[in-house]
Structures are given as structure tokens and as C-alpha cells.
Nucleic acid binder design. Structure first.
Lengths: 222, 222
DNA sequence: GCTGTTATGTCAAATCTGTGTAAAAAGATA
DNA sequence: TATCTTTTTACACAGATTTGACATAACAGC
């Protein structure tokens, strides 16, 4: 879902039309008030925000968005009039993720939206690295296209690995994240789960690398 | 460190001057070739890349950057001529982090640089000196662009060296930091690790200098 | 230049440590 | 209860680390 705040109905409709025909779900708002109302109902993935607005201007709206913990992480693209460089600077410094200079092409808008979403890939619900893909919602894992049945702990560990490919997780980190407690004493619990993971993942099992003296990581295949 | 690739000497100098006077360390390049040469030596925090370049254009350079595992995470801001919308789209789709439309103000450039760096802040912690780069999170080391496999102690020692380039570490300091204990008695342990480090780092091995009677350090320049 | 002294480089052997694995015990779940 | 998951224990082994002996290089004084 993408929200567009834009007072010019022509531009607004064009934006919504383009976004929808590109496969996004989009809703337009004429001003800040109805926009904030909608925000209470549903948080969009991204906001396109015009700076020149009648009652409350875009900069003010942006400040409010960034001030509230529920909305501060939603990426914002500011739309600004040509030559208003100061606005751009202010917007960027206030935490806008990008901006569009009017008049902008719809192709460009879509590209920027995609680029920002790519950057802010906050919660991709499906993690994929190499031949392994893990669906967080469905709680399923496929390796080389084949469904793999994992237990809870195994799933959580694999999810961590996939969430940051190439990054090494120490046993302490794994314990903290998966068990929520500290890694105390000498136990081979983690190793055990890694072993079964490797086994169940078959071919892809080799992607889980041991970093001796440190921990484990999933190979960032290149 | 920020690298600027721009064929127009006037613009390039202006960029470098502005960035330096803002507190950044910046170096300019006229074309792709010297830029890639410098890249072997040191990886910058950010790259400002002109699209219209004589021999190899910015899009090509961007593709190369994103194709190499050592450079694909470095944020890139593309500089493009006004109205060349297609370029922008292509650049953004290829993974550029932002772009500047020529002619752009220096204030805007600085704002964008800061914004991109802010966004990419929580990325990876990478120490780079000369041709060596060490990724703390991934626990990997590259020398001259090639992956080098290090053992735990080797990694820790190299990490110390890279954390303070040019500074000499005595054997006592190394023991205290890496082993967490005091350097007792006469043993060749540290020297041994330094030897294997130099060996494994190949060309870059020479960067580890012996300071007779004191300890070791990593050579800052060259 | 030499020469003796000292620090560092190198090697192979000895030691130590972390990890893989299996199997059994302990907890959950149904 | 039976079954599945998780944890623990025990042990073997590959690989990392350390050590001591010796070679080599650097330096200071002559």
C-alpha cells in the first residue's frame, strides 16, 4: 500500500493510476487531515508527499511522521517544485528517503518508489539465499525447490542466518535471539541444531559454514 | 573517504573542495580506469559517479561495482544531465542509492551525501587499509580483492592492526587485546601468527611492518 | 669494514581446542 | 501412553595454537 498526499487532483489521479497499473495498491489524499485519519487505520509501505500543500505543508507532515514511533520508519518520497532547493535539503535532513522534482515523469516516480522500497526492504516476508527460501508467514522452507520440514528451533536459527547472509552468528548471538537467554556453560545445543539443519537442507546444507572459534554463517553465494 | 568520478575538471574540483571543506575526505577521478585502480587500494564510504563519461560511462562502472562482492555495498550517487530520465531509471534500477541532476548545487550534494550515509549507516562495519579490507560482521578478509581465509587469532590480530593504521602494537599489547592475558616468558607465538598473516595476505603481506625492538604495525600509506 | 649481541623469521613437532556426531536423557505434545 | 522435539553427555578428530630449537637479519661498538 502506497499513500500519496497531493492537492492537485490531476497529478494525484495520475500517480494513483500509474502506481495501480504497476501493481501497487495506492490511495490518494488531498491534505494532511484525511491522510492522518487513514494512517490510523493502515500504515502504508511508502508515502509520496507533496511539499506545497494548502493547510499543512509537506515539511510539517514529514516532521509529524518522523516524530511518531508508529510512522517514523515508513519511507517517504517528497515531491517538490522545481528550483526549490531549500525544500529538498530540509526534507532530506528531516529524514525523507528521496524526492521528486515537479514536473516528474511517471516512469521516474515508479523507479524511485521501487528503489526506495528496495533500500528499505524492512520486512520481506520471504527470505531467499542461494537455493534456500524461507517463508516467515507460512513458516515453510524450501531447499532446491523441495519442501523441507523443520522444527521450531531449526526454523528460527535458519531465519536468523538468512536474515543477514554472510554475517557470522556466534553461539551467544543465537542463544540471545532464538532462546532469549544467555549462553551459559558448555553445551552443544546449537551445534546439534546446525547439524540437523545441514542434514535436512540436503545439498544446501553446505551453505551453512562454520567459522571456527566464532560461530556459523550462511554463505552469501556469489 | 568519498570518491568522485567526473570528467569535467571544474565540477570535479568544486565537488572535492566542497566535500573537503565539509569535513569529508575526498578524491576525484577523471575516468573509470584510475578510479578502479584507486579502488584496489582503498574502498571509499561513498561514490559520486557521473553518468556521461568519455570512455566508460557511469552505468557501466556502476554495473561493475555492483557485480563485485568487495564493492557492491558501497553506496553510489549518480550525477546525471537534466532531462535524461532514462539514465536515472537505469541507474536506480541497477542499485544506485540516489542521484543528482546537473547542474546541482553544492549544498544539495552535501545534503544527499549525508542522507545516503545516514541511510547506509547501519550496514556493515568494514575496516580498510590499502588493499586489505576486513568485514567484522561477516568475519571475512579480502586482500587485493581476493578472499583470504584466516584463523581466529590471525583475524583478531589483523583487526587490531587495521583498527589503528600506522600505530605500533607491542607483543604485550597484542597479548592483552587478543589473548586477554599478559605476555609472559619468551615465546614466538605472536611472530608465528604474523608470519602466517603475511603469507596469507600475499602482496599485502608486506604492509605489516616490523618495528625492531618494539612490535608490529600496518603500513598506512602506499 | 668486522664482530658480538640481540631481535626476529622460520620450521616441525607437540599440545590444545573447538566442532561433528551419535546416542541417551529430558521435555513437550497429542 | 506414544511420539516428537530439545538438550545433554561423551568421545574422536581435524585443525588451530603454541613451543623450543635453530637460522637469519639488524644493530651497536669497535
Amino acid at each position: 500500500m502506497i499513500y500519496c498526499v497531493e492537492d492537485d487532483a490531476g497529478i494525484r489521479d495520475m500517480e494513483i493510476y500509474t502506481l495501480k497499473s504497476t501493481g501497487f495498491d495506492a490511495v490518494g489524499f488531498e491534505s494532511g487531515a484525511p491522510f492522518f485519519e487513514a494512517l490510523k487505520q493502515e500504515k502504508p509501505e511508502l508515502i509520496i508527499l507533496d511539499i506545497m500543500l494548502p493547510i499543512e505543508d509537506g515539511i510539517e507532515i514529514l516532521k509529524k511522521l518522523k516524530a511518531s514511533s508508529g510512522t517514523d520508519k515508513i519511507p517517504v518520497i517528497m515531491a517538490t517544485a522545481k528550483g526549490a532547493e531549500y525544500d529538498k535539503i530540509q526534507g532530506l535532513d528531516l529524514g525523507a528517503d528521496d524526492y521528486l522534482v515537479k514536473p516528474f515523469g511517471m516512469m521516474e516516480m515508479v523507479s524511485r518508489v521501487k528503489a526506495v522500497l528496495r533500500r528499505c526492504k524492512t520486512q520481506t516476508r520471504i527470505l531467499t539465499v542461494g537455493g534456500i527460501s524461507l517463508d516467515i508467514d507460512a513458516h515453510t522452507v524450501d531447499a532446491e525447490g523441495k519442501r523441507v520440514e523443520l522444527t521450531f528451533k531449526e526454523f528460527e536459527i535458519l531465519r536468523l542466518f538468512l536474515s543477514r547472509p554472510g554475517v557470522v552468528f556466534t553461539r551467544d548471538m543465537l542463544f540471545a535471539e532464538v532462546w532469549g537467554s544467555n549462553y551459559v556453560g558448555e553445551t552443544r545445543t546449537v551445534d546439534m541444531h546446525v547439524k540437523t539443519l545441514r542434514q535436512k537442507l540436503g545439498e544446501c546444507g553446505g551453505m551453512i559454514e562454520t567459522v571456527r572459534g566464532v560461530g556459523y554463517r550462511i554463505e552469501e553465494n556469489k
